[in-house]
């Protein structure tokens, strides 16, 4: 009996120890690759000199394993995407030119991740300015790093985190000359100057995503992928700052955010569907369960009704009093 209890207790303690360790583990098959590709240097036999030489690793080939295992492909083997010939060391130099897979190569028609609507994402991307200007050069990985990508818009319960993650994808090129020059000969855009017209620029940069204004909003798609030419980006404040705010069909539609607001239990809207009426609070209780405020969009019908009633009674009182004054003159 005592040994059974001890076994159960051990199992209980062990379960806590195993779970976090597992989530931080790189697949066993990747260990050999990781050994070099997490180091700052590597050793190679130089056939010309006949000596073993230690050289610095190209920083772009050093993998952050913590971010990798946390990413959507963290459980993958390296050769799931890279050529199996990489198992030979030293690697064949020509392998660097191997075409890497895009999202749609694996996820096209993928029923397992049907809710991600990869094919629709592809359709939208095909219309985007990135595609128009850069053609096949512009692949999914330019924004979505396959090694580290996490679907933050689906999983995060923080608007700020979703915004930061999304904007960093844009800024990784548009505010980084090293990557920007891979696809453009132009000078790096001066983001702050270009957006000078935007009131409270820093607040906008921190609280909304670039794609809010720079894409055609598709409320039935988790994230709009049709990036517009800069001339077509919206500059109309009331598209967001109104009761019919566009943000309801973009940033504030996610059910994960809604779950946090505590309303999801009473609602059957599935992930990715529109969370319409984010800014319309039906009861006082809901006021205190919502974390977003957008000027012109955040309205409380109950408070508005009270305001109208007070205003009407005040005006009625003034008019009545004035009539009596006139009659008794």
């Amino acid at each position: 009996m005592l040994s059974s209890i001890r076994a159960i207790l051990l199992l209980f303690v062990f379960s806590f120890l195993v779970v976090p360790v597992k989530s931080q583990m790189v697949a066993e098959e990747n260990k050999l690759c990781i050994e070099c590709h997490t180091s700052q240097s590597f050793t190679i036999h130089n056939d010309w000199t006949g000596m073993d030489e230690t050289r610095l690793m190209n920083p772009f080939y050093i993998l952050d394993t913590v971010r990798f295992v946390d990413g959507v492909h963290g459980a993958f083997q390296c050769i799931d995407c890279h050529s199996y010939e990489y198992e030979t060391y030293p690697h064949n130099g020509e392998l660097k030119l191997e075409p890497l897979m895009t999202c749609i190569d694996c996820h096209g028609g993928d029923d397992t991740y049907a809710s991600y609507q990869f094919d629709r994402v592809e359709e939208e991307f095909e219309k985007s300015i990135h595609r128009e200007l850069l053609g096949d050069q512009f692949t999914c990985s330019k924004c979505h790093d396959q090694h580290y990508y996490t679907p933050t818009a689906r999983t995060s319960s923080s608007v700020k985190e979703i915004v930061e993650y999304s904007n960093n994808m844009c800024l990784s090129c548009h505010d980084n000359m090293i990557k920007y020059q891979l696809v453009s000969d132009k000078e790096k855009p001066q983001l702050v100057q270009i957006h000078d017209w935007l009131p409270n620029q820093e607040l906008h940069f921190n609280r909304v995503r670039c794609i809010e204004c720079h894409t055609v909003v598709q409320d039935s798609l988790m994230v709009s992928h049709n990036i517009l030419p800069k001339e077509k980006a919206t500059k109309n404040c009331v598209e967001c700052h109104s009761s019919n705010s566009m943000l309801q069909a973009s940033l504030y539609k996610y059910q994960n955010l809604r779950l946090r607001s505590g309303n999801a239990e009473n609602d059957s809207v599935s992930s990715g569907e529109v969370y319409s009426g984010s800014f319309q609070f039906l009861s006082m209780n809901n006021i205190f369960s919502n974390q977003y405020y957008v000027i012109g969009a955040s309205r409380i019908p109950l408070l508005n009704t009270i305001f109208v009633l007070i205003f009407v009674f005040t005006v009625a009182g003034i008019v009545t009093h004035a009539i009596f004054r006139f009659l008794k003159k």
Binding site: I287, Q291, Y292, L303, F307, I310
Partner: peptide, 22 residues
């Protein structure tokens, strides 16, 4: 308490502003 401080401030600002209008 999980409510945006900006929202609470804005609501309060609107209420006070409304009464000044009245």
């Amino acid at each position: 308490y999980q409510v945006s401080g900006v929202m609470l401030t804005a609501i309060f600002h609107s209420i006070v502003g409304f009464f000044i209008m009245i």
